[in-house]
């Protein structure tokens, strides 16, 4: 198992290097690299000094190595827009995004999987048809549109919930959390639903497809032939067996949920990294873009590793092969 983790970590380093190269080419090499480290209103003298200081007169591969060196030291530069170190800026926004994303993904799974299993268990039932209709909508309708409808319905028309912002927060572990206060929850609920709907649709589909196939399998027939109740069969056999693909997708989707948080945070003015990246893209605040992309890549790799470990924990066949 340790060898497996080490191997994965080694792969992670290579992937991070590849991504840093892509980001370097995408964000620095295209366009004028000086803009990355200097605000547009700097004087000519400062410009020239900076070119020398950052080595922009050097060949590209040297610049890349220097870029890597800065990254390795945690130096992502300063944001022009907010005039503070990028790492600190992102660090201050990250908890809000994580809070929103986790609420959405966990909520989608906890609600979506049982409903999907039901729809797979009774594919012709009326309730199943309704569940599937909701999932087709959640799958098809763009996130931003759902956000608008939610705001229009619950904030503008009904006035039940706030239309945006984070509301009251409470401090825990040195970070502010909305989910620790009632007002915070009121602010969290609409964006979380917005972000969750796509994942919910995905979980419903996965659970439904898996359940439908398993209900025809010999494993389920054998359990039935042994007289096990349908509840036991669904909980102990079907849920267990579909949990492996669900965990995989859960991990992968957590990443894409982080990405879609960009949209949700923009609509609901949720002060997380997603809103930050949109602001920095529209104002060409490139250090923030670089740091964000590297951070997302890091999170991805960490999640993939966790998914692999979770799979090994769930599936004894994998444990055996890797032990």
């Amino acid at each position: 198992m340790i060898a497996f983790v080490l191997q994965r970590l080694w792969q992670a380093v290579i992937v991070m290097l590849a991504i840093s190269l892509l980001v370097f080419v995408g964000v620095f090499a295209i366009g004028n690299p000086i803009d990355v480290v200097l605000s547009p209103d700097a004087t000519q003298q400062i410009r020239e000094e900076t070119i020398r200081a950052y080595g922009f007169d050097q060949p590209l591969w040297r610049q890349y190595l220097a870029f890597l060196d800065r990254l390795a030291h945690g130096d992502f530069g300063r944001s022009f827009l907010f005039n503070m170190p990028v790492l600190q800026l992102i660090g201050s926004r990250l908890p809000a995004t994580l809070e929103l994303t986790l609420t959405a993904v966990i909520g989608a799974t906890v609600i979506g999987v049982p409903l999907g299993m039901y729809a797979g268990y009774r594919p012709d039932g009326a309730l199943s048809k309704i569940i599937m209709a909701i999932s087709v909508l959640g799958f098809s309708v763009p996130t931003f549109w759902i956000g608008l409808v939610l705001i229009f319905t619950f904030a503008v028309t009904l006035g039940w919930l706030p239309a945006g912002g984070r509301g009251e927060t409470a401090r825990a572990f040195g970070v502010d959390w909305s989910c620790l206060t009632l007002g915070g929850w009121r602010h969290l609920i609409l964006p979380a639903i917005n972000l969750a709907l796509f994942k919910f649709a995905m979980m419903v589909r996965l659970a439904r497809a898996g359940t439908r196939e398993l209900m025809l399998s010999d494993t389920v027939k054998f359990a039935r032939a042994a007289g096990e109740s349908e509840g036991v069969i669904l909980r102990r056999h079907v849920l267990r067996l579909i949990s492996i693909p669900i965990v995989t997708v859960f991990g992968l989707e957590f990443g894409s949920t982080l990405a879609f948080a960009v949209v949700t945070e923009t609509i609901f003015s949720w002060p997380g990294v997603g809103k930050l990246i949109i602001d920095s893209i529209s104002s060409l605040d490139r250090p923030v873009m670089v740091a964000y992309l590297m951070l997302v890549a890091c999170l991805f790799i960490a999640i993939n590793l966790l998914v692999d470990l979770a799979q090994a924990a769930l599936d004894p066949r994998l444990r055996g092969a890797r032990a």
């Binding site: 894409s256 990405a259 879609f260 990246i277 893209i281 992309l293 890549a297 991805f300």
Partner: peptide, 15 residues
């Protein structure tokens, strides 16, 4: 594929 399409499109559209 493991990287969300929307992020990629977002960055590319911006660049």
């Amino acid at each position: 594929l493991s990287f969300p399409a929307i992020l990629l499109a977002l960055v590319l559209a911006a660049v």
